[in-house]
Amino acid sequence: MTTAIAIGMDGLIYASWLFLVAAGLTVIYGVMRILNMAHGSFYAIGASAGAALVTWYFANVDGNAYWSFLLLPAAAVVAGVILGLAVEQGLLRFLYRQNEILMVIVTYALLLILEDLTKLVFGVDPYFAYQPYGLLGRCEIAGLIFSNYDLMLVAVSATIASGAWFILNRTVTGKLLRAVVHDREIAMAMGVNVSAMFAATFVVGATLGALAGALTAPAISVSPGIGVEVIILAFAVVVVGGLGSIEGAIVGSLMVGLSRAAAVHLAPEIELFVIYGVMALVLAVRPQGLFGRAAARKI
């Protein structure tokens, strides 16, 4: 019984983290058809910015520790907006006519560049911005101790997920966005300002990536190289769920999160394969992912 509860809790916590990481990726792909490899860098930069700011705050300001909960997202938003705007306006908007695969490679080059720039800006010494992590204390569920910070992330993830769903499905902006997703050219012809939409989407996506990093930062040691590690995970989640679909990202993270937790508890030796196994299985059954729309075969 303890094991079953543990699997559920661990799976949920991990899934919420996966969703945070994958949300920005799927938003950008959904609207812009860019599979953004540099998403990992946004995550890393968000983490570094958040960790650096929190470390600075605790070292130099003798304020209320709870302010750090605001500092983390603030750092992420600033980093995400600056970075998103710079990349979209400075590079990507000139390349929208290129095909999808070339864009993957463009963002891969971007990943390489940002990886070194992060190192130049934040240095290579790990940031250990642990203070916010312990602040909320811990609780006991079925004899197991959980960190309240992790549980808070579950709530944050759920809020972002429902917020994204609401914006897409219940607001005018969302409707316009879906129109762009459905047919970019027609939307443009109907007077939708597509380039502004694209810029806004990219900035939001980048900010979500940075936010994921910043919120993870207190639980890890932030050092160069953390960005590369999350890309493939995020890809797996998004592909399982269906590229470009928020619902898909939710279900994808839950599936990957729960199956990994189950593997860790019940069969640790297969843990390494679980993520790719789930991905291969889902694709074998439903090639377009769980929530992806099958493309019509055009003659």
Binding site: E100, G277, A284
Partner: peptide, 22 residues
Amino acid sequence: ARYRDIFFAMLSLALSMILFGV
């Protein structure tokens, strides 16, 4: 041979990562 586009890319990636895992 049943897959196209990004799904071909991702499935091929998943298969190579399974070999990596093994």
